[in-house]
């Protein structure tokens, strides 16, 4: 049996979480893809980045979702109609739901996590890739979306 922090295992939990939330919350299907070309990522002028921290006695980490701002605005319009929804709030809640599913997936391998409230930032670049990060790339409505998961064991 693989370790809960094994990157492949984490990626599987993340994939299921993202799939479930996209279909259940936004009624959308996304496709997991290979990493987009640098030129496509560079063409994004503003990213919306949602992040939720996960805390437990033995482990901590975070879940981060990044997508181009126009995609977030389109998703909000898709959900509520033009100009009614708030793209930042939508991405915060979306990240919260994905993080919740990931925390539930990890809870079967140990104590549950406490989820912090989501933080959403605008960024001109896709956030970096620290050591231990599990990143997957997705695509919907022909835009890129990245899901990052970082979970580490506390030193004993």
């Amino acid at each position: 049996m693989s370790s809960p922090l094994d990157p492949q295992h984490l990626n599987g939990i993340g994939r299921r979480a993202l799939d479930e939330v996209l279909s259940g919350f936004l009624a959308l299907d996304a496709t997991e893809t290979v990493a987009p070309q640098e030129s496509e990522l560079a063409a994004v002028t503003v990213w919306l980045v949602g992040q939720v921290s996960l805390l437990s006695e033995q482990r901590s980490g975070w879940v981060r979702v990044a997508l181009p701002e126009p995609l977030a605005a389109r998703a909000a319009d898709h959900l509520f109609g033009p100009g009614i929804g708030d793209p930042s709030d939508l991405i915060g809640e979306f990240t919260n739901l994905v993080a919740g599913r990931i925390a539930s997936g990890l809870a079967s391998h140990g104590p549950g996590f406490t989820l912090q409230t989501p933080a959403v930032q605008r960024s001109e670049t896709l956030p970096g890739h620290p050591l231990g990060l599990v990143r997957s790339h997705w695509r919907f409505w022909d835009h890129p979306l990245t899901l990052d998961i970082l979970v580490t064991e506390h030193p004993t």
Partner: peptide
């Protein structure tokens, strides 16, 4: 957002009538 036992147990003690996991 998540349905772990650590989340749900205190809710039952506080008399919550029902719960649902988002989404």
């Amino acid at each position: 957002a998540e349905a772990g036992l650590a989340t749900l147990a205190p809710l039952a003690r506080l008399g919550v009538r029902d719960y649902l996991t988002k989404p």
